[in-house]
Design a protein around this nucleic acid. Structure first.
Length: 201
DNA sequence: CCACGGATTGGCT
DNA sequence: GCCAATCCGTGGA
């Protein structure tokens, strides 16, 4: 696999924590209305189908979470807190129910449009740039990912992830996940050390 | 800097 | 009816 090729199905069809760590540094891309929006994935969280009470899939498939039980390499988008969307990458075997929440992205391309979507203006300050995609719902707002993207195939042409140089293990920080109340002991949040675009130290 | 609470829909018990 | 894999503004130290 060459750098900057689209990540194939086999990349996603592995254990969720392995995929989560190897997603760091990869390039998330959205093609939309002839515009290309992209950025580097700098923070993720793994949610496992088994023995992870915090996972949406823990209690089995429902109408809402069915994409998590589908094939790996698809996007699971959910709506929460009455106003936010969050995007996840489905991993592992079909019917298993694992996914990775994309928590932070370092903006690289289409920054004017990302800014317009998030802040309603093109010219933003350095502080606003750091705040552009530093959170799962911020990413969805900037990249305009809503329920219409739920179930999107990441091996397709709309939303996909490009292979990019891997992040070495000594640059990957592992911590407890954020904003959950169950299984808070699992250290399945991963982010790139010293990257200023992560949501929280 | 930190802590807290409000916004606001929909999924599931 | 309860409360959520969040974000933002406010108010105090």
């Amino acid at each position: 696999m060459n750098s900057f090729d689209k990540l194939p199905f086999e990349f996603y069809n592995r254990k969720v924590t392995s995929v989560a760590k190897s997603l760091l540094g990869k390039t998330f891309v959205r093609k939309n209305c002839n515009e290309i929006l992209c950025g580097k994935i700098v923070e993720v969280e793994a949610y496992d189908g088994k023995s992870d009470e915090a996972s949406h899939s823990y209690n089995g498939a429902t109408k809402r979470n069915q994409v998590m039980f589908g094939k790996a390499g698809h996007l699971y988008v959910y709506f929460t807190y009455g106003m936010h969307f969050c995007a996840n990458v489905v991993t592992g075997k079909e019917n298993y129910g694992a996914a990775i929440l994309i928590r932070a992205i370092e903006p690289l391309g289409g920054i004017d449009i990302l800014s317009q979507n998030r802040f309603g203006k093109k010219n933003i300050s350095g502080k606003e740039l750091l705040n552009l995609c530093s959170g799962p719902a911020k990413i969805c707002q900037a990249f305009q990912i809503t329920r219409g993207s739920n179930g999107a195939n990441l091996c397709g042409d709309d939303i996909f992830i490009l292979d990019s140089p891997s992040v070495s293990n000594n640059k990957i920080i592992s911590t407890a996940r954020i904003g959950i109340k169950k299984s808070i002991d699992l250290p399945w949040r991963y982010y790139i050390k010293d990257n200023p675009y992560v949501s929280k130290k």
